[in-house]
């Protein structure tokens, strides 16, 4: 009986992890390109320092800072669910996984490919999470490079969900959940993902170029 319970726990926390990761992705993309950051008014007038009312659009009924905060905090919640998901699957023992299979892909006895995708996703997620917690010690470009691997992590997590959960995927609700996640991320990517064109970013790029030119001369 206990084994059955663990099996249910594992499946349920797996789905919740995916939904949370999707939410974290969507929230992350909602901040993309410094969305809504107040920027130089390029006219000649010198306006008085800005009050918060000049801030850009809020999303999900949250302030921009709120979106960022939810992104950070929800990612930790997602990690907790993922730990439970993995631990229960290991302890359950039904699919005969060992600890190595959690991190090293494609070695599992059971469904090696799809479990393997899950393992790669776990590795990337750990990299994204740990690097974020150590953010103050890591140069920003490095942190950002690691962070962007989230875009590889998430599809792997989806594939892992869809194809490991063979039995559950037969049910309509599961199909709907996975489909909704995919739609949410694709929509957010199309709507919000963009190159950073904030005047600060443009000026910085120009400054970098000038600096390089100065070194060449």
């Amino acid at each position: 009986m206990d084994a059955q319970v663990l099996w249910y726990v594992s499946r349920a926390t797996g789905v919740v992890s995916l939904v949370l990761l999707t939410a974290v992705m969507v929230l992350g993309m909602a901040t993309s390109g410094r969305a809504g950051s107040p920027a130089a008014a390029t006219s000649g007038v010198a306006p008085a320092p800005a009050a918060p009312s000049r801030f850009g659009p809020s999303r999900f009924g949250l302030s921009r800072a709120g979106v960022h905060r939810l992104h950070r905090e929800m990612s930790l919640v997602a990690l907790v669910f993922l730990v439970v998901h993995i631990a229960s699957a290991l302890v359950d023992g039904y699919v005969g996984l060992n600890l190595l299979d959690v991190f090293v892909p494609f070695g599992a006895d059971y469904s090696p490919l799809w479990i393997g995708f899950g393992a790669v996703a776990v590795d990337l997620l750990l990299a994204v999470g740990v690097s974020s917690l150590l953010r103050s010690r890591i140069p920003r470009p490095v942190w950002r490079g690691i962070h962007l691997t989230a875009y590889a992590m998430w599809p792997l997590a989806v594939l892992h969900t869809a194809f490991t959960a063979g039995g559950d995927m037969a049910s309509l609700w599961m199909q709907l959940v996975v489909a909704a996640n995919v739609v949410a991320v694709v929509a957010a990517a199309l709507r919000w993902r963009r190159r950073d064109q904030h005047p600060d970013a443009l000026a910085r790029r120009a400054g970098d170029l000038r600096h390089l030119a100065g070194n060449v001369r």
Partner: peptide, 18 residues
Amino acid sequence: RAFGLCAEELPEGIVLDE
């Protein structure tokens, strides 16, 4: 990088320049 989030969190102590 002029994200401006700090001024949302602490408007009493932080304003943003132009």
